[in-house]
Write a protein that binds this DNA or RNA. Structure first.
Lengths: 257, 257
DNA sequence: AACCTTTGGTTCAAATAGCGAACCGATGAT
DNA sequence: ATCATCGGTTCGCTATTTGAACCAAAGGTT
């Protein structure tokens, strides 16, 4: 494994649950020697990619990300464009809308919007890592990803996030077939109890699936009429978002009627 | 130079002016062999730190920055906190307020706010790289930075950004003395013609200067009363921001009366 | 059409950087 | 007093990186 990859893989150890990591802990989590880890972190710190907090000397993500993400957003205003579409989608459906991007074999939420149509809304968090098999977004992504990737994801032990999470690969494959036909995925309490969500994949300019947009609503509110409204709106808004981002759905993607 | 540093230094070549860079161009700008550059970029791409655009195969910053900057912001909500304070400052002064962070020997703006008190406002841009000597923020940072850093910055040829940019190190040192006494820096048309700005440094928990907050107004609007208002407001708001970020001004920083 | 320049990308013997076991002092727990 | 763990350091050995030379493709010039 290249040295650069080793260094970057350290950055990937940060999460919402672990925003700060000490040197020895880092080495353990990364499966690297402490001296190696120290050297890599020192180099990352020199460029502002990590920094040490004042007290316990733990490391956290550094200020370089503020600048580089702003540069990225200036060049490819993905989040800004997404927010516009998600706002429209929340207004149209009266529910929470969010977008997540595929990174490795996880989804990362990058933007979400709420509606003020109801007092209760499904709550989201930035940079939350979502498992593919346990979310409607993840299933939408899998349905329109290369077979090799699907095999890789489904060949690993799949964890149940709630009692309702589907973890049987054969069942998931069946679901994927249905999603390919419908053009959207549905998950009921798969990731969070009593949350019913629909998701549609987002594609890039080479028609590769890069993420998904989902609408999440409380199960109690999800009657037939709301379901049909959400399916229609999330499909049309996500198709529009794909286009706004300069992408194209693959030919296999079902066209809306 | 370490391999990781080489790779990260490639990322630092991106700017608002150059959001996309081809392989050969990268190698030239980085002063590296094309094969080396190619390998480093491939490794960065594998982790989502850069990506290639569809057409010309140029490279740009990748989606990893969206996620990692959201994680960083979740852990250290610097931008969010800054925006709150900047909003108050814009309202109090009726002018544009912005915050920038020191990264290497440049300042990077990370947040800005406008007021709707006037039709004309000084316009800002995210991720804009600012020279230290040519901006009020830069001078504020220099005034409260270690002497070695000041020497390093002032020993390099200083470029004039406008006809009014001060580039004589002796003159700048004189200005720095004044700023240390006042607790704020002033720049008139140093970075942008007809813009008069005041800046106050921001400190971290070990009282190191990490950036600055500035208020920028058109020269034509800057009478004595506005100047005094801005000096008072930017000082008190920035002191509050330093505290909100868990920082402390150094003992040498003049206390407000 | 022929030629030149530049592009993105590749190869592999030689050169260089990275690795990690063993070590250090400091700190907290027992 | 002793032990465990922390962040951090060293240097002989090991592995990775390097870059000159090469490739096909594409665009520009004559």
């Amino acid at each position: 494994m290249g040295t650069t990859s080793k260094a970057l893989s350290l950055l990937e150890l940060f999460s919402r649950a672990t925003p700060e990591i000490g040197l020895s802990d880092f080495a353990r989590r990364a499966g690297m020697n402490k001296a190696t880890t120290y050297r890599l972190l020192t180099e990352l710190a020199a460029h502002g990619f990590v920094e040490q907090t004042g007290s316990g000397r733990e490391y956290r993500l550094g200020p370089a990300f503020l600048r580089l993400s702003a540069l990225r957003e200036a060049a490819v205003p993905m989040r800004e464009v997404a927010l516009g579409v998600l706002n429209d989608l929340s207004k149209a459906t009266g529910e929470t809308a969010h977008m997540s991007l595929l990174q490795g074999d996880l989804l990362t939420s990058i933007a979400y919007t709420y509606s003020d149509a109801h007092g209760t809304q499904v709550r989201m968090e930035d940079a939350e890592a979502l498992m593919l098999h346990a979310t409607s977004s993840g299933l939408a992504v899998l349905a329109f990803s290369p077979a090799a990737f699907v095999d890789q994801v489904l060949s690993q032990p799949l964890k149940a996030r709630t009692p309702d999470t589907v973890t049987d690969p054969a069942q998931i494959r069946q679901q994927l077939k249905q999603i390919r036909q419908n053009g959207f995925a549905v998950s009921i309490s798969g990731f969070e109890q009593d949350v019913h969500s629909h998701a549609v994949p987002v594609f890039d300019s080479s028609s590769a699936c890069i993420g998904a947009v989902a609408v999440a609503a409380p199960v109690a509110r999800m009657d037939d009429a709301l379901q049909m409204l959400i399916q229609t709106e999330v499909t049309s808004h996500t198709t529009r978002l794909t286009r706004l981002l300069g992408g194209f759905p693959p030919p296999s993607f079902p066209t809306t009627t």
